[in-house]
Amino acid sequence: MYRLDHVTKQYQGKRTVTALKDVTLEIPAGQHVAIQGPTGGGKSTLLQMLGALDRPTSGRVVLGEAELSHLPDAKLAGVRAAQLGFVFQGFNLIPTLTAQENVEAALAPLGVAAAERTRRAGEALAAVGLADRAGHMPGELSGGQQQRVAIARALVKEPEVLLADEPTGALDEATRDEILELLEGIRRDRGLTLVIVTHDSAVARRAERRLHLRDGVVTEGVIR
């Protein structure tokens, strides 16, 4: 599924910051991977490389047959639209759109017809248990409900990979467990590759594979 060859990412500023140092990594399809590490260790940068949101300074990032490190912006957008789903710590819902419309927004770049969009978004919301909240604005939903909408938005396009950046970081413990069970259930049902960046060891322990990132260097953790 994923293959990273000697990936280095540097940010240029007053001084150059190396977020990833010569990272070489493979993630097979369908694996549940947790990435842990201290703040500033490079976790989010690695997730951005995997999510085709940024390009490495050097090295190669390959997803399936596509080498993401050399694709033009428009192609990267196409990969994100069709193959990747994102879940963010802060939910990142569009505040002026309803839950239903937020989910539909993920289908807009795929050219799905309006009626089909409505149907699929409704099904995705039902899958996360929010069929009755479709017409609600994000501000009218609890944190857990908002994250469910975000998960529905990520899954509605039936991606191959789900990338989650601290998906439970803004939630209480009970809601966290609820969301994790939801994500793991979906992964099992759909055979998704699930990559979760987390500070929370309780979340990381539920993954098949744990990676530790410190100062841009990846080390393997426990593989269950």
């Binding site: 957008a77 994100r80 639209a81 994102f86 802060g90 990142n92 569009i94 927004a105 993920a106 807009a108």
Partner: peptide, 16 residues
């Protein structure tokens, strides 16, 4: 900014 970043993350192209 976050809104547009999110839309780009879920596959919206610049043109859109």
């Amino acid at each position: 900014t976050r809104e547009f970043g999110t839309l780009k993350a879920i596959g919206w192209r610049n043109r859109r």
